[in-house]
C-alpha cells in the first residue's frame, strides 16, 4: 500500500513537472473562491450524429476522408472513418472507460495507437463539469477562463461570453499529452475540431460537413 502511495506521488510529481500547458500563457485568477461554470462536451448536449471531413496525420503518414460520429447510447459513441472512395480505415465504439474496435485498417492496427486514440476520444466526447476544478486561470492571449481539474489532470478553456468549450488539454496516458481544440462554433456546435498528440506526432482534424 505504501509502495503504491509513493508510486502515485511520483507520477503526480512527474505529471506536474511535465505540464502540457505553458504556465507563462496563464495568469492565476479567482483566488480563494471562483464561480464554477457548467459546461460539457459539445457531443453531450442533445447530440445525435455528425459528419466530418477528416484527416489523420500520424508518424509521417497522411490519411484523409469522411468520418461519422454517432451517439449510440447514453454511454457510448460510434466512430467510423473511411477514405473518399469509401474504404474503411477505422470503425470503433467508444465508451468512457473502454473501446471496442469493429474494424481497423491493418496499417493502423497497433494497440498503443488505438489506446491513445480512444483516450483522446473519451476526453473529447465525455468531458463535462461534473467534477469541481481546483484552480482557475485567465489565458493571457484569448482572455478565456481556464480551469484545472486535478483528478483528470486536465485543463479546460471556456469562452465565458458564449459559454463554449474551446480547448481541452490533458494526458492520453502517462507519457502522451493531448490538446483538443474546438473552434468556429455554429449553433452551439464546433465546425472545426483538432486533436494533437505531439509525442506520437498525431494530428486528427474534423471539419463539420453536417449534423
Amino acid at each position: 500500500m505504501k509502495y503504491f502511495l509513493s508510486l502515485n506521488i511520483v507520477f503526480i510529481l512527474l505529471l506536474t513537472a511535465c505540464d502540457p500547458v505553458k504556465k507563462s500563457q496563464l495568469s492565476p485568477s479567482g483566488k480563494g473562491s471562483f464561480k464554477i461554470p457548467v459546461w460539457s462536451s459539445p457531443f453531450l448536449k442533445g447530440f445525435e450524429k455528425a459528419l466530418f471531413h477528416t484527416s489523420l496525420d500520424v508518424a509521417g503518414k497522411h490519411l484523409s476522408g469522411i468520418s461519422i460520429i454517432k451517439r449510440t447510447s447514453d454511454t457510448s459513441f460510434h466512430f467510423t472513418f473511411a477514405n473518399e472512395i469509401g474504404m474503411t480505415y477505422l470503425d470503433m465504439e467508444v465508451f468512457r472507460k473502454t473501446y471496442k474496435a469493429d474494424y481497423i485498417f491493418e496499417a493502423l492496427n497497433r494497440k498503443s495507437f488505438l489506446k491513445v486514440l480512444w483516450s483522446d476520444f473519451s476526453m473529447m466526447l465525455f468531458s463535462s463539469s461534473e467534477r469541481k476544478p481546483v484552480r482557475m486561470y485567465l489565458d493571457n492571449e484569448s482572455e478565456e477562463s481556464v480551469y484545472f481539474f486535478l483528478r483528470q489532470s486536465m485543463y479546460t478553456w471556456i469562452n465565458t461570453k458564449e459559454m463554449n468549450l474551446t480547448r481541452l488539454v490533458g494526458w492520453s496516458n502517462y507519457f502522451d499529452a493531448v490538446m483538443i481544440n474546438f473552434s468556429e462554433y455554429d449553433a452551439g456546435f464546433p465546425s472545426e475540431i483538432k486533436i494533437s498528440n505531439p509525442r506520437i506526432r498525431m494530428v486528427l482534424t474534423f471539419s463539420l460537413l453536417g449534423h
Binding site: 469522411i66 461519422i68 449510440t72 460510434h78 467510423t80 473511411a82 472512395i85 469509401g86 470503425d91 469493429d102
Partner: peptide, 15 residues
C-alpha cells in the same frame, strides 16, 4: 453518386 453503407450503425455517407 457514391453511397457508403455503414452496417453497424445503419448510416449512409453520400458523395
Amino acid at each position: 453518386t457514391q453511397t457508403k453503407e455503414l452496417s453497424v450503425i445503419r448510416e449512409k455517407i453520400i458523395s
